[in-house]
């Protein structure tokens, strides 16, 4: 059986065709780099994604500050993690890399601030 994948590792977005036998990968074609094969293996076992959003910034020059995950998490956990992130608030000032949630839901990924924001003086 053949299954097609669009690799999301980089902007090339290679269209990869994987030949499968049961759950096993027989061959992988169409990837321009070796990350493509690893992506297909991950998609078949446990698809993972990162995402970004923002949280309320208290006392800051901006009303919001952006955050992101440091590592991809299982796709089915996106909404649970998103909900948890939205309950967080940050106090100004904040700096890039500051951790909002460490090892979120035990998934091995941190939620970090991605923008410098000063205090409203």
């Amino acid at each position: 059986m053949n299954r097609r994948f669009t690799c999301i590792v980089c902007p090339n977005g290679c269209e990869i065709t994987a030949e499968l036998d049961g759950g096993k990968i027989v061959s992988v074609a169409g990837a321009r780099c070796k990350k493509g094969g690893a992506y297909v293996r991950q998609e078949l076992t446990c698809p993972r994604r990162t995402f970004s959003t923002s949280i309320i910034l208290e006392g800051g020059k901006l009303p919001l500050v952006s955050v992101r995950l440091t590592k991809p998490i299982p796709k089915e956990k996106i909404f649970a993690v998103n909900e948890l992130i939205h309950r967080q608030k940050a106090q100004a000032p904040v700096r890039i890399g500051q951790i909002v949630l460490e090892n979120v839901l035990g998934l091995g990924s941190d939620v970090i601030i991605t923008k410098n924001a000063d205090r409203l003086s």
Binding site: T6, I8, P11, G13, R49
Partner: peptide, 8 residues
């Protein structure tokens, strides 16, 4: 847009 954005 890029194929990866259609996907993710």
């Amino acid at each position: 847009g890029l194929a990866r954005n259609v996907e993710q």
